[in-house]
Nucleic acid binder design. Structure first.
Lengths: 335, 335
DNA sequence: GTCACGCATCGAATCGATTCGACGACCGGA
DNA sequence: TCCGGTCGTCGAATCGATTCGATGCGTGAC
């Protein structure tokens, strides 16, 4: 292993000068800097991560806590994770992967051992048990999602309430009067996952405001369950002409089920969804949707952390406004 | 931050004794050990990761390189990653997440800075450009998948060739004479992903051995593409009664397409797949399948690394034998 | 010509653990 | 009683960087 003293000797300067030349934390003459850089390059010098962390009390590693529970759409998590890693690398940081299984003890461990400088926590619940811990850690964190009491924490997410509203308003504008929300599996609501509830809030509020008749239907993430919900909807709400889907895996099966029941999309039924654009576009009938911007959320989350690490203040709440893209699955209600 | 000297003082011993008491690397009297442990617990002592890494030249971190390319089934990657993290934790290690985007430079960086002790590389190609680098690193690695020349490396994966064979043999045993393989998207073959090719090899070899007529059909991962392939199969191979699917996202759409074309599964067409059990069971007609044991592969990969880190020799190749589970999608060919 | 100031560099302390060699106490055997 | 050998503990060196304070040199002002 080549170390800083090797570089120093090779460049004819002291170790501290090497450090300053490479980090730029103190002015170094152009000529010396070039010499140091050349020496480092020639010898293939790589600062030892542990030594650096010890001396600088910065590990340049972020922790990312990912969920692994049922009812969460895996590709979204993955895309988010990739975006976090990519953005972190742009800021010269690496990413340590933690599963939720580790729980609070895991967070405490990586924070207290100084293994990481900061934390990103996904899948935040409305009543989030980890909040006291996160507040007490000496390391900054960013939550993906909004707990009930986010006081003193930094949170970011798509504005799911506004997303629910946007879908309803879009349908209302097209003249639909009876709408339904097909949501996530029941367990997602039972454990009070924040974003699922907010969609319901927005959906219901906007429907009430616009005087629409509305109903909410949780649904398991299986094609069979989708068919059941489709049948139930037609039975219980015969006048239904607008559907909002917030459940990625069943988007396509649900539309198929409707069509097999004799309803054309969008002819008889307009469908909108809250899901990744990629998914909305891959359905046979491309679906009008509010994008789930996982990549953007990941990127912004890392950037918030970097600001906090840099000592800057950041807003406690960052709500990304919904972006609705019209596609082939919605049209004005036929008279 | 509470450090080892604090614990030492509190327990009335020297720092080195604390270290030995907690690590067990030297015999310490039962009584002192208890005192040290009590002190550590009371003060909430957590060894500083950087300091520990510097002194012991072990970071207790593994690197995991995940693919992010098209045509790879995301849930499999995710399940694998989770299993790696979980197993690593059991061995007191953490996991650093790298994307393939980082390339060789990323591998070199984390290895040379001693940020990680060892590496796990997923999505290995037949002609794998990273091999020379991996061989030259001073840190052990495990590859998920088999490159063409795996000499001197440690590789592990499902035995995809045997998996392809198992599917064909199952169909042959049931009396089917004309079989087809619906495979991964073309780009997966073009870039010579090892596992995809091996399935084809096994499939073809077993079909030839059993005197079956066989054909291979790459397929994009979209329902529309599945429908096209279904139509093409019926057109070009009217006598077809057995299908092997090696493409997770289209498993369900493909079966639906067959049924819409008037073929009953398994009545007219027996279908087997190579995919996670979970997926095979969630299809409307549960599919006879060879399991894709991502969790097991992840676990075994970590354990191989731990052995290597411990100085033990490990086998260069670990091929997990295929495990075929009969479900509702296959039956003997009707006369 | 002298003094003060600034820039570039150096030396030494520091970060917080692990680990090696040494030392004292205690034991049993001769 | 003396000696060799364990067992348990300590002290000091070490890992490889960063960072603070100090120093020396050159420059410009008076």
């Amino acid at each position: 292993m080549v170390k800083i003293t090797d570089v120093a000797r090779h460049a004819g300067v002291s170790p501290s000068t090497v450090s300053y030349a490479l980090s730029g934390k103190r002015p170094i003459s152009e000529e010396t800097r070039q010499r140091v850089e050349a020496a480092a390059r020639e010898l293939g010098y790589r600062p030892h991560a542990g030594a650096r962390a010890l001396a600088s009390s910065r590990s340049n590693v972020l922790a990312l806590v990912i969920p692994l529970r049922a009812g969460i759409h895996v590709p979204v998590v993955m895309q988010f994770a990739v975006s976090v890693v990519t953005t972190a690398r742009r800021h010269d940081h690496d990413v340590l992967l933690l599963t939720q299984e580790e729980g609070e003890e895991g967070l405490r461990r990586v924070a207290d051992t100084a293994l990481v400088d900061a934390l990103i926590v996904m899948d935040v619940q409305l009543r989030e048990p980890r909040l006291p811990l996160l507040r007490s850690l000496e390391r900054p964190s960013v939550l993906i999602g909004f707990p009930a009491d986010s006081e003193g924490l930094t949170c970011i997410d798509l504005d799911f309430k506004a997303a629910g509203e946007a879908c309803v308003e879009h349908l209302a504008r097209l003249g639909h009067r009876v709408v339904a929300l097909v949501g996530s599996p029941p367990e997602v609501y039972v454990r009070q996952t924040a974003f699922a509830q907010r969609v319901v809030q927005g959906f219901t509020a906007a429907a009430d405001r616009s005087g629409l008749s509305s109903s909410v239907h949780p649904c398991e993430a299986s094609p069979a369950a989708a068919r059941l919900v489709a049948e139930q909807l037609l039975r219980e709400h015969p006048a239904l002409t607008g559907v909002v889907v917030h459940n990625e895996p069943i988007l396509e099966p649900l539309i198929e089920a409707f069509e097999q029941l004799g309803l054309r999309v969008p002819g008889d039924l307009s469908v909108t969804a809250i899901c990744p654009d990629e998914l909305a576009e891959s359905v046979r009938v491309p679906v009008t949707s509010v994008a789930l911007p996982s990549a953007e959320v990941g990127e912004r989350a890392v950037e918030l952390l970097m600001k906090k690490l840099g000592g800057s203040a950041v807003p406690e709440a960052t709500l990304l406004p919904p972006r609705l893209t019209e596609r082939a699955s919605t049209m004005p209600r036929s008279a």
